[in-house]
Design a protein around this nucleic acid. Structure first.
Length: 203
DNA sequence: CAATAGATCATCT
DNA sequence: GATGATCTATTGC
């Protein structure tokens, strides 16, 4: 585990949808820069507090490691689109596609701090006792925000799933550590959290 | 609090 | 036919 000190974004319009070029970079950079941004779907949204980078063909833990298939095709497409996959027979997880077309980097959104449409999210996650249980995990946040495989391939700049600049953000530090729930490349420090944030999937 | 079992199915071998 | 970028409930200290 390591701590990375960040600067507040030099120039950002609060609430503005992130531009395509934000995503057209390496997944490791995008994963860190997504922290503190807003993930918005329809009437729900929150602050991204935990992400993981997946490095495509270079990364045995990535769904794209063995090349394009019907499932992972959007990861090889243009940046700034959603890759939503179904896992464990039960859950869906959202990624944002990075890198230029042809390269398959992606960032898994692992946890969100609920901010918009909290009541609606509560009804979708009736088992969640505390606010911090609503979206503190990749499978939980898709349920809370109504994100399904129907959004696989959706454009994050023009669909009703978007990522936006922070409204009013305090400076924060980033903690890096090993990714969760994988067996290959398990020691690569590609999981990033807002240091000390209580809405992450685990401390 | 930590460890473990069970749910459940699309995808790939 | 096995596995998996998970979650919840339950069991055991």
């Amino acid at each position: 585990m390591s701590i990375i000190t960040t600067q507040p974004p030099a120039r950002s319009q609060p609430g503005r949808i992130l531009p395509r070029r934000f995503y057209a970079r390496g997944a490791t950079d995008v994963a860190q820069d997504l922290l503190g941004k807003y993930l918005i779907h329809q009437d729900t949204g929150g602050i991204i507090v935990e992400t993981e980078a997946y490095l495509g063909l270079k990364d045995a833990a990535s769904h794209a490691y063995c090349g394009p298939t019907d499932r992972n095709r959007v990861m090889f497409g243009p940046p700034g689109h959603a890759y939503v996959y179904f896992i464990y027979g039960m859950y869906e997880c959202v990624n944002v596609v990075c890198e230029k077309k042809g390269e398959a980097g992606a960032v898994l959104i692992r946890a969100v701090e609920p901010r918009i449409g909290i009541e609606l999210m509560r009804t979708r996650r009736p088992g969640a006792k505390r606010l911090r249980d609503i979206a503190s995990g990749p499978g939980k946040l898709t349920i809370a925000m109504g994100i399904t495989r129907a959004l696989n391939g959706a454009d994050l700049l023009t669909s009703d799933l978007t990522v936006r600049e922070a409204i009013a953000s305090e400076p924060f530090e980033i903690t890096a550590g090993p990714r969760i729930g994988i067996t290959k490349c398990a020691d690569w420090p590609l999981r990033f959290t807002i240091t000390g944030n209580e809405f992450v999937s685990r401390l």
